[in-house]
Simulated scan of single mutants.
Amino acid sequence: MKTYLYLLLMVAGICAAPHMSSITELLTLLQQMRESMNLRIETPDDINDVNCISTVFEGIEQLKTNAAMKKFSEFFWKFERLKQSLTPSLGREEKCDTERKSATVFMGNLVTFIRKAALRSARA
């Protein structure tokens, strides 16, 4: 029984490793993006509010269409994969309080969002 449990945990770790690597790459790319942006984006007042997930996705789309972000296409591709894993867990959203803030503030909140999403998916 102990051997079976050990093998099961080892397989789970192997399956989770690529996902965590992807999260690390996302955060690295996001840091590089923060350093090259001057844009105002609708940003949730509370990044922990589940009602604001679609606002985060809309902000990412706004970044994606900015010409300065073309060189970060890898980030958007990786984020799209994360978005697909989060979308099924979205329920009906309620009101989300937002404010137009600099892209740097939005991206700082996005770091928090990505880390929390990674924790949620690791627990699942």
Rank of each mutant, 00 (worst) to 15 (best):
T65W: 00
M20V: 10
P44Y: 01
N51M: 08
N51C: 10
F79H: 05
T104N: 04
G59R: 06
E25Q: 15
D46K: 08
E99M: 07
R120E: 15
K116N: 13
P88M: 08
I47K: 03
E61Q: 11
Y4A: 13
I60T: 08
E35W: 01
T28K: 14
T104C: 01
N38E: 11
N38R: 09
Q62A: 11
R81I: 13
L26S: 05
K116R: 15
R120V: 14
S21Y: 13
N38L: 03
A117H: 04
R81G: 08
A103E: 01
A124N: 13
A68I: 12
T98Q: 02
E80H: 11
L26N: 03
K70G: 01
C52L: 05
A12T: 03
D46I: 06
I23Y: 05
M10P: 00
I53M: 10
T65I: 11
K95I: 11
Q62S: 12
T112C: 01
L119I: 09
L82M: 14
F79I: 03
Q84D: 08
T55Y: 02
K78N: 12
I41Y: 03
L63D: 01
M33D: 02
Q31C: 06
V105W: 03
S54F: 08
M1D: 02
Q84A: 12
G91W: 00
G13H: 00
I47G: 00
D97S: 12
T55M: 11
F106K: 02
T43S: 08
V50D: 10
S73Q: 06
F76E: 08
R34F: 01
C52P: 07
R123C: 06
W77T: 13
E94S: 15
K64V: 02
D97E: 13
A118D: 09
L5Q: 09
T43C: 07
E74I: 14
Q32D: 11
L119T: 12
M69F: 08
L63R: 04
P18A: 08
A67L: 11
K95Q: 13
S89D: 10
E35L: 10
F76R: 08
I53N: 10
V111I: 10
E94P: 00
K2T: 05
I41C: 02
A67Y: 07
T65D: 11
T55P: 04
K64F: 07
M10I: 04
G59Q: 06
K64Q: 14
A17D: 01
Q62R: 14
